[in-house]
Amino acid sequence: MRFFLLLLAILLATLTPPARAVEPNEMLKNPALEARARAISRELRCLVCQNESIDDSNADLAHDLRLLLRQRLAAGDTDRQAIDFIVARYGDFVLLQPPVEPATYLLWFGPAALLIVAAASAAIFVNRRNRTLREPAPLSAEEKRRLDTLLDERY
């Protein structure tokens, strides 16, 4: 029993959230501003690692961008302004969530459109099959004649 408790404790210990890359000396004194900075930096891509946010990344550039972001917020930028400041330099790619615009319509609506097309074709297919199963086509004259002869033979 004690062994299993120990094992459980070890397993739970590995479930702790991963340490963030944000260093204590980067943080702003004002907790409200710091919270905004954290929220924004989770949405910004680290250009060096490209699949991490600057909040997660240990790259030098990510560190610089975190500091820059905090400077902008401390200087009175709104969230929008601070994000636009970085997008102006690095482009939309820096946003982990790409903006909805004609160039990204396929990205945003493609999967839903594909689902609708697939669901519609499936519905049409199933519907057609059910109809043929439920109401079979009426017998042709030839079939009727054969059926009649078969029935006559038996009785």
Binding site: L47, V48, D60, L61, D64, L68, R89, Y90, G91
Partner: peptide, 12 residues
């Protein structure tokens, strides 16, 4: 400090 680099959009 790398600030001018950031203004140019340098990432490496």
């Amino acid at each position: 400090g790398g600030r001018t680099g950031i203004d140019f959009g340098v990432y490496g």
